[in-house]
Write a protein that binds this DNA or RNA. Structure first.
Lengths: 331, 331
DNA sequence: CTGAAAGCGCTTACAG
DNA sequence: CTGAAAGCGCTTACAG
C-alpha cells in the first residue's frame, strides 16, 4: 500500500501538504493540489485508517454487541443501526455473543481498546462492571432492547405492558389456561414480560402455566421443548404466549406433531414478532415493536453522545417504545 | 484510559520494560515484573490495539462480508468462521451488504485500510476489480459460497450438482413439471444451480419453468411472488425447487393461500437448507451443505495464508463441498 | 536485565 | 501557501 510519504515524494511536496490537499483542511495552491491528486490517483493511495485513528483519537465506528442475529428481531434492529450510522458517517462492527458471557467479555474488551468510539449492546447482564468501566473510560454505551443497568442509556420496549396486553387479549378471545414460554429471568425483558403476564392473570383471576427449558433461549428447539412441557403441565391449556418468534415457530411445530389445531384448540401469540410471522403456513399473531426505528434511534443517541463535547458525558437517557398487536391466523 | 507511559511512570521503569514484561517478550527481573504488573492492575491498563496494529502491521482480525445473515445459511457459516478464528486468536468483524454493490464497496474500502489482515466474502460480483486490488496490496481474500473469481481462493458447494440431484430426485418421485425459483444469474451459485436443473431436465426430457422476481433475492416475499408466477406460467406444475430456504418458506405460504397441498399436489424442495427447515409446520426437504464446517475451513485457509511468510502469497486454493439430500415432509 | 531511540502512518499547531 | 516538528501509543532492534 502506498503511504502519504510515497505521494509526497512523487508530488515533490511535504507530507503535511498532501494531508491538507486530500482532506481539504486548508488552502493549497490549485497547481500543487492537482499534482498531488494526480499522484494519489497514480499510486492508488488510500489513507490508513488505523494511523488516522491513532492520531485523531476518533474512529468513526460503533460496535454492536448482540446475542444473535439469526432469526431474531436483532437483525431488523441492526439494519436500522447500520442505516443511521452510515448516514452520519459511521461504520458499524457487529459482534455475536450467542448470549455467552465469556464471549461477550472478549468482544467488549477487544472493542474498547481502540476499535470503536461507542458500543450498542443487548447484553447478557453478566458484564455490568466491565460495561461501567468502559463507560467511565470515555466510550459511549447504549443498551438496546435489554436494560440491565439504569446508569447507562437505553432504547427499549415496555415489556411489562407487552406481556400484560397479550394476556388480556387472549383472555378476551376466550382463553382461560394461558401458558408462557419464557427465557431466563436474569435477562430483564424476560423478567418483565413475566411480570406483565403475572399481573394480568391476577387481575383476571386466572392461574399460571409457564416453561423454561435448557436449550439456548433463542432457538426453535427451545420453543418446541417448552410447548411440550406446557402441554404436560396443563392438559387444559388453551393458549400459548411465546416470548420470541423462533420459540413460537418451534411451538407451532410441537402442536402440529401432537395433532393440536392452531388456533382452534390452542391460540398462539409471539411477544416479539418480526417479518417471518406473516409468512408462515399459519401466520402468527404477535406483539411487534418498531425495530427498525429503535435501531435508528439507538445509533443516533450513541453518535450524538460520542460527538458531544461535554465532559463528563451527558446523563443516561432512556427511550421506551411500545409494541402493538398484529392479529394473524394463529389466534 | 491508562497508557504504557502511565504504567512506566508508576513502576519507575521505561515503557520498553513495561512492554516486555506484559508481552513476555524477553526476560525481566521478577521484582521489576511484579512491580509492573501491580501498576498495570492498579491503573486498569489495557493495551491500545490501534497502536499495536499500527506498530506491528498486523491486527489479528478478519473481516467477513456477507449479503445478509438473517434467516440465511450465512448465519451458520458465520458461526463456523467465528469459532475457528477465535481458536486461532483472531477476532472477526462482520459487514452486511444486503447484496448492494455500493454498500459492498464501502465495506471493503473501510476494511482494507488497516482494519483487517484478511477478508472472507460472499460477494455481489460487482467489485471484482477492487477485490483483486486488495489482494495484490497484500491482504488475504477468501470467497465463501460464491466463487466469482477463480484467481481468488474459495470455499464453495458444487451447486451444479445440487440443482441436478434435486431435479432427478423430484423426477424419481413422479414429478414431471418442475419449477425453479432462482436468483439473478449474475451471481455464480444461482447460475450454477440453474445449469444443474437444466442439465437434468434435458436428460429426462422434461421442460423448464422458472421464475425470478424483483424483490431482494433472499426474502420471503421473493419466494412468495415467484411461486405465484410459476403457478401462472404452468398450471400443471407438480414440484417447486427453491434456491434458498426463505424462498421456500414464502413459496409454502403462497401454495397454502392457493389451497394447494404440499406435498400431495406440489412437492417442494429447498436447494440451500438450514436449521429452520426441520421446524416448520410442514417440514421442508432440502439439499444441505456442511455450513459450519465450511465456515471453519474458510477461516483456517484465510488465517493460514495471512500468517504464511511466503511473498507473493500462496496460489489460490479452491475447496468444493457437496450438499446432501435431507428428506422431510414437503416432498 | 533495562534504557534510549527510532518508527508504524498519519494530523495539526507553529513558523515563515 | 507550504515545510518542519511533534506526537498519538505502542514495539523492537541496539547498546550497555
Amino acid at each position: 500500500m502506498a503511504t502519504l510519504k510515497d505521494v509526497a515524494r512523487m508530488a515533490n511536496v511535504d507530507v503535511s501538504t498532501v494531508s491538507r490537499a486530500i482532506n481539504n483542511t486548508s488552502y493549497v495552491h490549485p497547481d500543487t493540489k492537482a499534482r498531488i491528486l494526480a499522484s494519489v490517483k497514480e499510486l492508488g493511495y488510500q489513507p490508513n485508517v488505523i494511523a488516522q485513528s491513532l492520531r485523531q483519537g476518533k474512529r468513526h465506528t460503533i460496535g454492536v454487541v448482540v446475542p444473535r442475529l439469526h432469526m431474531t428481531v436483532f437483525a431488523e434492529i441492526m439494519q436500522g443501526i447500520e442505516e443511521e450510522a452510515r448516514r452520519l458517517g459511521y461504520a458499524t462492527l457487529i459482534c455475536n455473543t450467542e448470549d455467552d458471557s465469556k464471549t461477550e467479555r472478549e468482544c467488549l474488551t477487544r472493542l474498547r481498546n481502540g476499535f470503536v468510539d461507542g458500543i450498542i449492546i443487548a447484553g447478557t447482564g453478566h458484564n455490568g462492571r466491565l460495561l461501567r468501566d468502559i463507560r467511565s473510560s470515555g466510550l459511549t454505551i447504549t443498551q438496546i432492547l435489554r436494560q440491565q443497568d439504569t446508569t447507562l442509556s437505553s432504547v427499549i420496549v415496555n415489556y411489562e405492558n407487552c406481556g400484560y396486553e397479550a394476556t388480556k387479549y387472549l383472555e378476551s378471545r376466550g382463553c382461560r389456561e394461558i401458558g408462557l414460554i419464557n427465557g431466563t429471568m436474569k435477562i430483564a425483558p424476560y423478567q418483565e414480560r413475566y411480570n406483565g403476564y403475572h399481573r394480568a392473570l391476577k387481575e383476571l383471576g386466572l392461574s399460571e402455566t409457564s416453561a423454561i427449558s435448557s436449550s439456548p433461549v433463542n432457538s426453535l428447539e427451545y420453543g418446541y421443548q417448552c410447548a411440550l412441557d406446557l402441554l404436560e403441565q396443563n392438559p387444559n391449556l388453551d393458549a400459548i404466549m411465546a416470548a420470541v418468534d423462533v420459540q413460537g415457530i418451534g411451538a407451532m411445530r410441537a402442536l402440529k406433531e401432537q395433532g393440536i389445531k392452531v388456533p382452534e384448540q390452542i391460540r398462539l401469540i409471539s411477544l416479539t414478532g418480526h417479518i417471518i410471522g406473516g409468512m408462515l403456513e399459519t401466520t402468527m399473531t404477535s406483539m411487534e415493536m418498531p425495530a427498525h426505528e429503535m435501531g435508528l434511534k439507538a445509533a443516533l443517541m450513541t453518535i450524538r453522545d460520542i460527538e458531544s463535547p461535554t465532559e463528563p458525558k451527558t446523563p443516561p437517557q432512556h427511550l421506551v417504545f411500545t409494541s402493538s398487536l398484529v392479529e394473524r391466523e394463529s389466534s
